[in-house]
């Protein structure tokens, strides 16, 4: 890709960022700027991290981590009464395949809407894309969104009703019946689900318009609230042209549940990474106490490079980044 194409992508990015800022400023969201280097992260066993060390002659040294998302600081602001906020930040995720839709350093737009839930966030995000899209964006990157639950997609594309496959054994039998290979060692419900989803569902999801896939299985633990009437979480992901572009939660604010999440997920992270010898970030074990007065709130994270790819109809993330990592390491 030549420099003219890259400059063109940069012009579109600049235009889009500026319309997104107007969109949120006009709705009284505050743009914030939080740290990229942090002494603690939210435990997420599936995201590998980068670490570095702070040194100071008088204060000694301290391990620091590059954030995989600005969530850890944005939630601290909301807990202190900031109201609705948004941030453009650079995020870092280690050990991902480079190219197509991944760069280890990427741009994220994250916005938290106080007083809203995940359904309101669908509407807000639809308005956001509607008001800020590039003039030549293809149809598959433009509203109206199509909304489908994960279970609807499972039923449609592989004839599995998750309501009836809540046990690991039942789901695993379905996986084998579909032709997937046997797992070595014990496989969790979540792993079996993901193998089925990635093989038979995700590649077949409709791509003619943005797709919001909501109601994720509760077995995939995260900081989103649960539905009262079934084993699903108030969480959605948005796909554009087959690529994951956004993720949203109705934010969990139950102190005990957050403590439990931290305990369980951190133990899992430490166990797995001790085996692989990868970075084990510190976590703030008091983080849950922030949520004692946390308002009702929904948070959305949008991968800006991927959004730009869709809006410009460019098939590879490296086409919208000046210095993709795979170029600069050579």
């Amino acid at each position: 890709m030549n420099i003219e194409d890259k400059l063109n992508a940069a012009r579109s990015r600049s235009k889009m960022y500026s319309s997104i800022r107007s969109f949120f400023d006009g709705r009284d969201y505050l743009e914030v700027d939080t740290p990229t280097l942090s002494p603690d992260l939210i435990p997420e066993p599936t995201i590998e991290n980068f670490s570095t060390t702070f040194r100071n002659e008088f204060m000694g040294s301290k391990d620091l981590y590059l954030i995989p998302s600005p969530e850890v600081y944005m939630k601290r602001l909301i807990a202190q009464g900031s109201g609705s906020i948004y941030e453009f930040s650079h995020c870092f995720r280690n050990s991902e395949q480079l190219g197509r839709i991944h760069n280890i350093e990427f741009s994220m737009l994250e916005y938290y809407s106080v007083g809203m839930d995940e359904k309101d966030s669908i509407k807000l995000t639809e308005e956001l894309i509607n008001e800020t899209h590039l003039p030549d964006a293809p149809d598959y990157a433009l509203p109206p969104f199509r909304v489908m639950s994960v279970n609807e997609a499972m039923k449609k594309y592989c004839d599995i009703d998750l309501d009836k496959c809540q046990s690991q054994r039942a789901l695993y039998e379905k996986a084998l019946k579909l032709g997937l290979s046997e797992s070595q060692g014990r496989e969790s419900w979540e792993q079996t689900f993901n193998r089925i989803f990635l093989t038979f569902v995700e590649p077949n999801l409709p791509q003619d318009r943005p797709l919001v896939l909501d109601k994720y299985p509760s077995q995939i633990d995260c900081l989103a609230t649960n539905y009262d009437d079934g084993p699903y979480k108030r969480r959605w992901e948005m796909y554009m042209g087959g690529n994951e572009v956004a993720n949203c939660y109705d934010e969990l604010k139950d102190v005990e549940k957050i403590e439990e999440y931290y305990r369980k997920e951190y133990a899992k992270l430490v166990r797995e990474r001790s085996e692989t010898g990868t970075v084990i970030p510190d976590v703030d074990l008091d983080f849950a106490s922030l949520f004692e007065n946390f308002p009702q709130c929904s948070g959305v994270a949008i991968g800006m490079d991927r959004l730009l790819m869709s809006q410009m109809n460019i098939p590879n993330i490296e086409g919208v980044i000046f210095f993709p990592f795979s170029d600069i390491i050579h």
Binding site: P45, I47, F197, L198
Partner: peptide
Amino acid sequence: REFVNPGKGSAFVR
């Protein structure tokens, strides 16, 4: 072959 980390999921190879 493609490495995939589904949202909040561990690493798989498709």
